[in-house]
Design a protein around this nucleic acid. Structure first.
Lengths: 128, 128
DNA sequence: AATTATACTTACCCAAAAGAGAGTGACATG
DNA sequence: CATGTCACTCTCTTTTGGGTAAGTATAATT
C-alpha cells in the first residue's frame, strides 16, 4: 500500500473555518483574478474590451469567466448600459477594494524581490 | 476577424517589469504553493510526509513538485540528512518568510469576509 | 528472509482548464 | 448595402493539472 496522507499530526485549528478559507483562497488566488483586481484597483471603472486589452494574454473566454466569478463573489459590480453597441462597465465593490488592498503587499513583494527570485532560479538550475 | 486584445490603451507603466511581475504572480498564486507557504510559516521546519499529512488533499506528486518549485524560486530551503531511512526537512528562507508575511493580509481578509462572500454568492445565484 | 520506514521518481491516464475561432444582435456610419 | 462596434456565447481542440500505482535505495527490525 502506498503512502496515504490521511491523518494530520499538526493541531487542527478549526477544520470548518480552515476548509472554507482554503477553499476561498483557492478560488481567489487565481492568476486572472489577481491581475484584474490589480487593474481595476488602479484604474477604477473599465469596460470589457478595455480590460481585455490591458490584461496581457487573457482570452475573451477567460475574461468573461473571471469577471462573472468576481461578480458572483461580490468583488466587482457590473453595470450594463442599454445602448447600441453595448456598453458594460466594471468596477470594484468595496469588498473588492479591500481585497485589492490586501493583495497590495504581494505585489510590492513581487516587484521588490524579482531579481532575487531570478537569481535563485539561475543558481538552482546551475546546480542541477 | 474576432477580437484580438493586442494593443493596450491604458498607460504602459514599464512593460518589462509589468510582464515579470505578472509572470511571477502567475506562478506564486497557486493553491498548493500558498497552502504550503502558510503551513511552513506557522510551523517552522517540517519533513516531507509531515507536510503531506498537514496539507489536506495533496498528493505526493504535487507535494514534491510544489516543493521543488518553491526551492527553485528560493522560497524554501531543503535540507537532506544522509541517514536511513531518509530525512529531508523543509523550512522557509527569509525570502519565503517575507512572502508569507505579504500574504498574511490576504488570509486575514479571507477569514474576515467569508460570510460576505457567501452572502454575495447566494444573492447572485438567486438573481440568476 | 521478509517487512517497515522515508522520500522520492517514473509511467500512465483522465478530467478539467484554457485557447482559438466563429457566430450573434442591433444600430451607426461610409 | 456593406462594414464596424461591443460584449459576449458556442464549439472545438489542445494543454495542463493532477491522481494512481509502482519502483528504488538502505538499514534496522521481526
Amino acid at each position: 500500500m502506498p503512502l496515504q496522507f490521511k491523518t494530520p499530526d499538526a493541531q487542527p485549528i478549526d477544520p470548518r473555518i480552515e476548509r472554507l478559507v482554503n477553499d476561498l483562497i483557492g478560488r481567489i488566488a487565481d492568476k486572472w483574478t489577481m491581475l484584474i483586481l490589480e487593474l481595476l484597483a488602479q484604474q477604477g471603472e473599465m469596460r470589457f474590451t478595455q480590460i481585455g486589452r490591458a490584461v496581457e494574454g487573457i482570452s475573451q473566454k477567460m475574461l468573461t469567466q473571471t469577471l462573472r466569478q468576481m461578480e458572483r463573489d461580490g468583488l466587482v459590480q457590473r453595470t450594463v448600459h442599454p445602448v447600441v453597441p453595448p456598453k458594460v462597465e466594471y468596477r470594484l465593490t468595496d469588498l473588492g477594494l479591500t481585497l485589492g488592498e490586501a493583495f497590495c503587499g504581494v505585489w510590492l513583494w513581487a516587484e521588490t524581490h524579482l531579481d532575487r527570485i531570478e537569481a535563485a532560479r539561475a543558481a538552482f538550475d546551475a546546480r542541477a
